[in-house]
Simulated assay, not measured.
Amino acid sequence: MIKKKNISLYATIILFIIGTANSSMYGQDTKETDAPQEGATSVKQSQEVMNPTTLAWQLQLEEYSIFDTEGQDGFAQNFRFRGIIPVEKGFLIKVPQLLRVITFVNTATNGRTGLGASTFNQFFILSKKKWGQFGAGWNLNIPTATAAELGSHQWQIGPAATVTFTNLGNWQMYWIWENFFSISGNSKYGSSAFAVVQPNIFYTWSNGIYAGIEPEWQIDYKTGKVAIPMDFRVGYIWSGKLKYNAYIEPEIMAYRSDGYTRNLSNFGVRLGFRWYIPM
């Protein structure tokens, strides 16, 4: 089981992030400029920040503290770093695109801490309409985990797609569909083929506060088994020199097929902080 001093370390990091956010929010320059006053936001601006197809440089940090793991005792956690690089026009495919690099520092219930698997994905924004956007791309899972219990040890690749509905007033809805098929280590670990489906529904108020769901449902193509977690996120988006997004998100496992082992979390809480730099 993870030691109390490690939990205190995670809490200190989270409090530092929240403190930085508060000082950015309340310690802003009040001089008059041509731009909107720092701290001001709107439903449109907030929805642009949350939209996964918005072209913006982003740094996203998220701590997922897992307090109940199926069949295991002890505290676990996943700390995610995600960087997003926007490309206004690609070299080969002449459409806007987003490059995402994701890596984890994980702690298993036995107390072991180290790197988890990493992911690279590329989304092409293929269509923009009044109702929203459509994008498609691909994922690559890179086996950077330092221990078997911290992440996959197989190279995996697969297609991905996203559909975003933005012309819904204060509401916003988007779906993300990602696929992963193992291309290495099948003789040792067994082949894997699964999808992650992410339904996202949010309501945004004019003061930058928003609430909604953003679960990641998993479907195993080989066995038909599923994991259906449910979460509820409450967050706040505001503008300073950059745009910021902070949120808290409890999550429970609503349903898991017997024998499904890819997601064993029964209850956890996410705390996230994101920086956005528009192109």
Rank of each mutant, 00 (worst) to 15 (best):
residue 143 P to I: 10
residue 217 W to E: 07
residue 207 N to D: 15
residue 175 W to K: 02
residue 150 L to S: 07
residue 223 T to Y: 09
residue 156 Q to C: 12
residue 230 M to F: 06
residue 190 G to P: 10
residue 197 V to E: 04
residue 189 Y to M: 06
residue 114 G to F: 03
residue 146 T to A: 03
residue 205 W to D: 14
residue 198 Q to W: 02
residue 126 L to C: 06
residue 167 N to Y: 06
residue 193 A to T: 04
residue 139 N to R: 06
residue 185 G to Q: 09
residue 201 I to Q: 05
residue 120 F to G: 04
residue 131 W to I: 05
residue 227 A to F: 03
residue 146 T to F: 01
residue 131 W to N: 07
residue 192 S to R: 05
residue 212 G to H: 09
residue 120 F to R: 01
residue 125 I to V: 15
residue 115 L to H: 05
residue 225 K to L: 12
residue 198 Q to D: 06
residue 119 T to R: 03
residue 120 F to H: 02
residue 180 F to Q: 03
residue 145 A to M: 13
residue 200 N to P: 04
residue 214 E to F: 14
residue 147 A to V: 04
residue 132 G to W: 09
residue 144 T to R: 00
residue 217 W to K: 01
residue 178 E to A: 11
residue 176 I to P: 00
residue 223 T to I: 13
residue 133 Q to F: 07
residue 160 A to I: 03
residue 188 K to T: 15
residue 127 S to Y: 14
residue 174 Y to P: 01
residue 122 Q to M: 13
residue 178 E to R: 15
residue 140 L to Y: 03
residue 119 T to N: 10
residue 225 K to T: 15
residue 175 W to E: 04
residue 212 G to I: 12
residue 199 P to R: 08
residue 181 F to C: 05
residue 152 S to K: 02
residue 128 K to P: 01
residue 192 S to A: 13
residue 136 A to E: 14
residue 188 K to G: 02
residue 209 I to D: 07
residue 227 A to C: 03
residue 181 F to G: 02
residue 171 W to Y: 12
residue 197 V to P: 00
residue 162 T to I: 11
residue 196 V to D: 00
residue 119 T to Y: 07
residue 174 Y to M: 06
residue 173 M to I: 15
residue 133 Q to N: 12
residue 200 N to I: 15
residue 201 I to H: 07
residue 213 I to K: 02
residue 211 A to V: 10
residue 139 N to H: 10
residue 219 I to A: 09
residue 118 S to R: 00
residue 124 F to G: 00
residue 155 W to N: 06
residue 198 Q to N: 14
residue 132 G to S: 07
residue 161 A to W: 06
residue 187 S to Y: 00
residue 117 A to K: 01
